[in-house]
Design a binder for these strands. Structure first.
Lengths: 327, 327
DNA sequence: AGGCATATTGTAACCGATTACATTAAAATG
DNA sequence: CATTTTAATGTAATCGGTTACAATATGCCT
């Protein structure tokens, strides 16, 4: 690979001039520019971005930290981030943290040594203080870091949960259980809160209708089994995420209860799979792609030292009514 | 951030000595080493990897090019690649190509300028000559680049397809249609070939039983509809991938045909969703994670200038028998 | 004591760009 | 015409490491 020096020699100018041509900075005579461009062309010269980064301290590279790209929520998010970054000439490093604080810290360590310019964080393993210690701009998605300093993109979890439950009531379901997510996750807490907001004061309500899960399908299936055994009169399940909802559907179908007649299921997230199963899953859909794209745009603004209109963006969930609830 | 010079000053030695300590290269007196380590500790010094890369020409960064991370096949692959790379201290840049040659070329261009050390390619948009022009080691997964020079990880598509079809025959299905993948993809061609190997000479066979698709669910559903309309006596569908198989199931269920009694469906790939729908999809599963991990290991060997045991690894698909075929 | 291998450390070149500063020529100004 | 601006270019420092080479010290052998 040719370097700037070879180009400068071929063009009969100094490296500074070549650099000026490359960056359109400073004065360069038209004729000189032409000579340089021709030399660049001839040698098929491409600037060495590592060298450039060393003097610039800019790498046009960002990190994307997700718990696990295999979790169906994250591919769409990753795609959005990557699309926007690509559009602005940035490159995206993918990191799977498994929600392990150690792994995250180690990753961030290396990424900072590599001069990444920003980080999109979908995780709750790290404390706000640890995140604040990062040297690069960070945007957190979904699992809010409880820190004013870190910009976030979140959804109105509580309100969405309320809507979902109200929707079930409107459709005539009378005893609604909740499969809640892992207790350490804020969004699980909020969704549960929203559920409670609606049902708490209803006469049939009783805390046993809330079953804890881990956002995985298996758990959802198992929890549903126990639930129905203990409370056979439950006629609707509001799951805190789609995977658990799918687990619930499996159990319900195995038990031979017709969906949506005898049992309704509503999920949360709006992942693609929900539209593939039959009956299709009714769900409170998050605008996953939009959230990723928004976070990416915010991060870029921060990297480029522009100010953000708002530190905390809350996007709206939307109910997608499909086959697991009756009309 | 402290740099090596500050460390050397605090330790009262030259930068060369610090570098020797860092890299455990050359001679360093025990006492000196201790002084240096203490200085590193005090300043919380971390080497600047960009600077190191500039003199090394090693970035410990690789690229992973997939058509679209949102396609359910790729997250597992990406996870495998990332896991192995992480294990060996490499960092993974994610690229979505949408199978567009232009996008791929542009990406590779930038990645090379950034000194990536290797590339894992899941794509067929580029010609072998274009791939050979890359300056870094490449491993191709799945969609074989028809070039002896590029190491590949593939599956025995043809054989797997044969097995799948034979399995259907064994189970007593008598008229098996095939939803084939996009004509430009080698694996679609091979799977179709495998199907033909078995059924071509059977009396009921007839080319109209092969319907073209694009590996997407929608297409699979639509193609199945047309298929059943034209050939109502078809009692089994072998789809070239799981997404189309899922589409097929949807159509079949909508038409009220009981699965697996009146209609069987077998997919190909073994993506996670197959186990979530009901009935669960019988499929020729590729060891997706293993393929990614294997490709990653091969790439690392190439980067580290070790020789490969074999340029072309063919891994075995395996039938997972589930609910869409009868016992 | 002289010669040689080994150990320890430093100086300076190098990786490949950017850029502050200096120099000179040409154009604009009074 | 002298003076100031603007234009054009080059020299060399810098980013933060690695490493070839040189210099010196030490121990061992004959």
């Amino acid at each position: 690979m040719a370097n700037i020096k070879e180009v400068s020699q071929l063009a009969g100018v100094s490296v500074a001039t070549v650099s000026r041509v490359l960056n359109r900075s400073g004065y360069v005579h038209r004729d000189t520019e032409q000579k340089v461009l021709k030399a660049i062309e001839t040698l098929n010269y491409k600037p060495n971005l590592v060298a450039r980064s060393l003097s610039n301290k800019k790498t046009r590279t960002i990190g994307l930290m997700v718990p696990d790209i295999m979790n169906p929520f994250f591919p769409e998010l990753a795609r959005a981030v990557e699309d926007v970054m690509q559009l602005y000439g940035y490159t995206t490093i993918l990191c799977n943290s498994d929600e392990k604080a150690e792994k995250e810290k180690q990753y961030v360590q290396v990424l900072e040594q590599k001069y990444i310019e920003g980080l999109i964080l979908v995780s709750s393993a790290l404390s706000p203080e640890e995140v604040n210690r990062f040297e690069v701009p960070v945007v957190a998605i979904d699992r809010t870091i409880a820190s004013e300093k870190v910009p976030t993109v979140t959804v109105n979890n509580r309100e969405g949960a309320q809507q979902a439950v109200r929707f079930l009531l409107d459709r005539g379901y009378r005893k609604i259980a909740h499969l809640r997510g892992p207790s350490q996750l804020l969004n699980a807490e909020e969704r549960c809160r929203g559920y409670l907001d609606i049902v708490e004061k209803l006469d049939w309500f009783h805390p046993g209708l809330i079953v804890s899960g881990d956002y995985e399908m298996k758990q959802g299936a198992k929890a549903t089994e126990e639930l129905i055994q203990k409370h056979p009169d439950v006629d609707a399940i509001f799951a805190a995420n789609d995977l658990m909802a799918i687990g619930a559907i499996r159990t319900v179908q195995k038990l031979g209860l017709p969906i949506p007649e005898k049992m309704a299921v509503v999920g949360y997230d709006g992942i693609g799979i929900g539209g593939m199963i039959l009956p299709e899953l009714t769900t409170m859909a998050q605008p996953i792609y939009d959230m990723g794209a928004l976070a990416a745009r915010m991060l870029i603004r921060m990297i480029e030292k522009h100010s953000l209109d708002s530190m905390h963006h809350e996007v709206q969930v939307q109910l997608i009514e499909r086959g697991t609830t009756r009309r």
